[in-house]
Design a protein around this nucleic acid. Structure first.
Lengths: 240, 240
DNA sequence: TCAATTAGTGCATAAATAACACTAAAAACC
DNA sequence: GGTTTTTAGTGTTATTTATGCACTAATTGA
């Protein structure tokens, strides 16, 4: 419950923390998982890279704030967005008390464009295993947690499809799983599992390449079966 | 990242949301899963039941605030505590903008005592399937989410032990699983799984009852094997 | 035409799961 | 004091699911 007392309207701002929303934006670029970072212009952590974010406005919900930040940084709408965790250590920001609600966003491989806002000196996609270290604030921790969540949810949700374009081959999908999980998967077992799950819709399209042409598939959004999709490759990677 | 601009210190409090921490406190009472609720004394939602919580102080982290709330309501320390989700819809509190960071707490069966604070007219444990409806604010939603998280984490963590006293029998443990999952489990399979997992430590103690006396066990905190404990009964109950 | 390359299938075996029948040790009943 | 009831705990087997790996398929390039 909220405290019973109405917040006194003459409360000074010193008794209220500031609240920001930070968005960890992932995308697949050149078949590699990337994260979007911005370079800070001013103190504190001037010149260091950080996860994009900003203060929440009083007339928007947390998710609306996250979508706004996302669009300001990437110009992209309608992406997968999920709340990650709320970080609220007392001294995570040297200026004053700031509580940050972190979100994860997944941007389709074919959709990303980025904009440099005037509040940062640079914006860039980094491969997740090559992010500059350390990041500003407690953002190393936030990014690590985001990756861990991404890995664990990959196994029991259809989250991976959010990173793919409309049409894709089954082996491309397998490649995403390998990218994010960081391990090789068996081709035969992957085909079997993904087919059995019934979440793919065959299309008449093929794509030619070096060897045998490959069939293209599409993610079936409202599949008839109502049983939940579970795609677990290993037992021991779920978040604790 | 945080916004680049230092928060202007003359910012009025109208531009900052208030932040509360709400704690969904579960315990096992008479072998049944209960949740602690407080009855509100004042407007809004006067007389209705709510999840205990309160405003965060500037000199405490989110988790510290949750522990403080928990101790104020139950007098209990050293309990399992985990962040659930942050609720921030614009109009969830009719008075002003309030963002609430919700936590889950698990209190051991033998430990609960409750105190009525002077800010609420009553405090009570409710069986989770008999909570008064509707709760104040968006607390129905918070409670539903907490239960869902509890169920899903039960299967791949050792969370259930947090609800048991120091010594317990294997069938008592099975009972907790059944309580929280809401389904009967096979005795033989339960014994096999829990033994194989190697997370229990045999004690010399027995407890006598109606039939054959039962052996008492203790949860092994730092078990030698470093592989993660996984206790999954069904595939399809994980959170999405 | 034949090696190289990428796509996709089949299958034997191993491991996990589920259902259920069985034995064990005490108290309650008569 | 024997028999029934109750709770504890073990064993066994059929079925399902996971895993590793060998195989076939269709194309390009030499």
């Amino acid at each position: 419950m909220q405290d019973e007392r109405p917040v006194p309207y003459n409360l000074s701002q010193y008794s209220l923390p500031a609240v920001t929303v930070d968005v960890v934006i992932f995308s697949l670029i050149n078949r590699t998982l990337h994260v979007l970072l911005v370079q800070r212009k001013r103190w504190p952590f001037e010149g260091q890279w950080a996860i994009p974010g900003g203060f929440i406005r009083l007339d928007e919900s947390l998710e609306e704030a996250a979508r706004r930040e996302l669009e300001e940084e990437t110009g992209v709408r309608d992406v997968y967005l999920e709340q990650l965790y709320t970080f609220g250590d007392v001294h995570r920001d040297p200026r004053h008390r700031v509580i940050s609600v972190a979100y994860i966003a997944l941007v389709r491989a074919d959709a990303q464009t980025i904009r440099v806002s005037d509040e940062s000196s640079d914006v860039r996609w980094f491969p997740v295993d090559q992010v500059p270290s350390p990041l500003a604030f407690d953002h190393d921790q936030i990014l690590a947690y985001a990756l861990s969540r991404l890995r664990s949810k990959l196994e029991y949700t259809t989250l991976a499809f959010q990173l793919l374009p409309e049409l894709f081959s089954i082996l491309e999908l397998k490649h995403i799983y390998e990218q994010i999980l960081g391990e090789k998967l068996d081709k035969g077992n992957f085909y079997r599992k993904i087919k059995e799950a019934g979440i793919l819709e065959e299309t008449p399209y093929m794509r030619e390449g070096r060897g045998r042409p490959t069939r293209l598939w599409r993610f079936r959004r409202n599949r008839p079966s109502d049983k939940q999709f579970v795609f677990r490759w290993r037992e021991d990677r779920r978040e604790s």
